[in-house]
Design a protein around this nucleic acid. Structure first.
Length: 594
DNA sequence: GCCGTTTTCGGCCCGACTGTTTTCAGTCG
């Protein structure tokens, strides 16, 4: 049996978009709703923060809104056998090249088909090269329905497609947005300016950036926007909307609205797309049509304006929905029942138990850069009551047990002496350690050395490719040690770089609940691990979580807000997050039974 | 093909922009 383990969400989304494309070419009229169904399923998969393969492993494919019985069974076939005859039959009506060309921005199924036909392109592999060559030779402008402009657009689209790199991390996207907002604010006609879209929803990675402006003079704002000094090119520019490209290949969309309609613009542009579609379908059944301009009553032929977002949601009988959970995951019906969770907030975090210091214990991985004093100063700015020093364990291969014990005794002394020297002792320091989980599930630290610690955390730093079964056993046996409080960066993923490990999450969650272990939400920007979708399942199962920064520098403590965002995206409340609790409670939790 | 928010049948978001057109089709978010 052929098993395809390497299908990414992006590849599956591309496959489903191709099916939608083929159906469009067959007959857009007859297949109208099947087309949107396939496109929506593809969008849901592309934007899901769970790997589809993991959902399939757990038999939860249909948990994703937009995937029903049929598509789920086709995907099941795909994961089991690597092929889906039903899709193959639909796709076989057109040359493979059509689906390749559809990948180019600006080219949809119909344009792709016209180009393939007129230029005699059929093979997927050489399709882009052939198209580019034809465009450069000026052949495309000769095809009916095309002109010089569209030929130029195609070349730009191909270039953009080639340059396409990974998505931006939150802090990168934030920096780009901030710089643009500063520029836009220099326009005197601007009354308000906000970043919206996936950045406002605090998704783990950001594809493009959306900016909204409240102003009664849209044309001045657009003029300012398209003269942004850092832009690569203007993609398009209209009366009140425009798009530009800035390095590194990041698209920025802007939309301007008069202040009295600004609320509906915020709502529209924050998305997500799937949340908005679901909201508009709901509203339609109530007799209202929603858009960025406001709410239209279909019965009374009347328009309602909203200067803020809350009144927009309230008008529809819904509670205000925080941006982080606008993903069409059940938030609309809960808002209708006035039953949304009270999401955890930045200000509720009282400490951080995963911080690397510069105390050198000859660690297995990188040492922190900052001194205890620098770390404590950073923690005071955040009004923390405590921090946990969670340095890596000393390397096991290059030390004897007694050397390790010696190093940790000295480390304990250093921490204690520092704490007593602190004026007012405003911040309590815990003596913790991040311990490698060896490939057989044992800890990379002898029990004698573990005795010097207040607590331990464990993490996978090697042998990432073990099978799901073995990895699950490995993690559980490490967590089982009484000194261990939590699993650090549980999936081990690195955004844009490395997929997470394979784990049986139901088993891990069960173990955590029954044995009083916590899972970390690591706020390091290219980790954000646990991912939000797993946070949501964990919270539902009653697992306690702890948000930490994994700081290697005192400045990194500020990253905690990214971890809080992940927690919020996973529907966590204050009660779900261990480090919203004060020092005394944390002390008793750490001492309890350890 | 999906979904249950008056529906297990009969609905299915809304508007912007561009290019090649003389009124609209295609694509996008």
């Amino acid at each position: 049996m052929l098993i395809n383990r390497n299908l990414s969400n992006l590849q599956i989304a591309k496959l489903l978009h191709s099916v939608a494309g083929a159906l469009t070419l067959d007959s857009e009229e007859d297949n109208r709703f099947r087309i949107t169904a396939y496109d929506r399923a593809a969008d849901a998969i592309e934007h899901s923060s769970s790997e589809l393969k993991d959902l399939w492993d757990d038999g939860n494919l249909s948990n994703l809104a937009g995937i029903g019985e049929n598509i789920a069974s086709y995907l099941d076939e795909l994961f089991r056998t690597g092929r889906v005859p039903h899709f193959k039959k639909i796709l076989s009506g057109y040359p493979e090249a059509v689906y390749e060309l559809m990948e180019i921005p600006g080219i949809g199924p119909k344009t792709a088909q016209k180009l393939c036909k007129a230029l005699g392109i059929s093979k997927a592999k050489s399709s882009l090269i052939q198209l580019e060559r034809a465009a450069k030779k000026g052949h495309i402008r000769l095809i009916e329905g095309f002109g010089e402009e569209s030929e130029k657009e195609i070349l730009e689209g191909i270039a953009q497609h080639h340059r396409k790199t990974g998505r931006l991390l939150l802090p990168q996207a934030q920096a780009i947005a901030n710089s643009l907002i500063t520029w836009i604010s220099g326009c005197p006609q601007v009354q308000k300016v906000d970043f919206l879209g996936s950045l406002r929803r605090q998704a783990a990675t950001i594809g493009d950036i959306d900016i909204s402006v409240a102003s009664s003079d849209a044309s001045s704002v657009i003029k300012r926007f398209v003269s942004y000094p850092k832009l690569t090119r203007v993609i398009d520019s209209g009366d009140r909307t425009a798009s530009i490209l800035v390095p590194p290949d990041c698209q920025i969309d802007i939309m301007v609205q008069p202040p009295e309609q600004y609320g509906s613009l915020l709502q529209h542009f924050t998305g997500s797309k799937l949340h908005n579609i679901a909201l508009r379908e709901y509203a339609l059944k109530q007799g209202y049509s929603l858009s960025e301009y406001g709410i239209k009553s279909l019965k009374q032929a009347k328009n309602f304006n909203f200067s803020d977002e809350k009144s927009f949601y309230n008008f529809l009988g819904l509670d205000y929905i925080p941006p982080e959970i606008r993903e069409n995951n059940g938030e609309i019906s809960l808002a209708l029942e006035k039953n949304l969770p009270q999401l955890v907030e930045d200000s509720q975090i009282k400490g951080d138990l995963h911080i690397h210091s510069d105390i050198d214990t000859e660690p297995s991985h990188d040492l922190g850069k900052s001194s205890l004093l620098e770390l404590v100063n950073s923690a005071s700015i955040l009004n923390y009551e405590y921090i946990g020093l969670n340095d890596h364990n000393p390397g096991v291969s290059n030390h004897t047990e007694s050397q390790i014990l010696d190093l940790l005794k000295r480390r304990k002394q250093t921490i204690e002496q520092f704490m007593y020297s602190l004026e007012n002792r405003t911040i309590y320091l815990f003596n913790g350690m991040e311990i490698d989980i060896l490939s057989n599930g044992s800890l990379a630290l002898p029990d004698s050395a573990l005795g010097t610690l207040d607590y331990a955390s464990v993490a996978v730093h090697s042998a990432f490719n073990q099978s799901r079964k073995i990895m699950t056993q490995r993690v559980i046996s490490a967590l089982n040690h009484p000194k261990v409080l939590f699993l650090a960066h549980p999936t081990g993923r690195l955004l844009n770089k490395r997929e997470g490990v394979e784990l049986d999450w139901d088993k891990i969650f069960d173990f955590c609940v029954t044995h009083d272990k916590w899972l970390e939400i690591d706020a390091w920007p290219n980790r954000l691990d646990l991912p939000d979708s797993l946070v949501k399942t964990a919270v539902k199962g009653g697992v306690k979580l702890i948000i930490n920064t994994d700081s290697h520098d005192a400045e990194n403590l500020q990253n905690i807000r990214f971890g809080v965002s992940v927690a919020r995206r996973g529907w966590s409340t204050q009660a779900d997050i261990i480090n919203t609790r004060g020092l005394e409670e944390i002390k008793s939790l750490i001492l309890k039974g350890r």
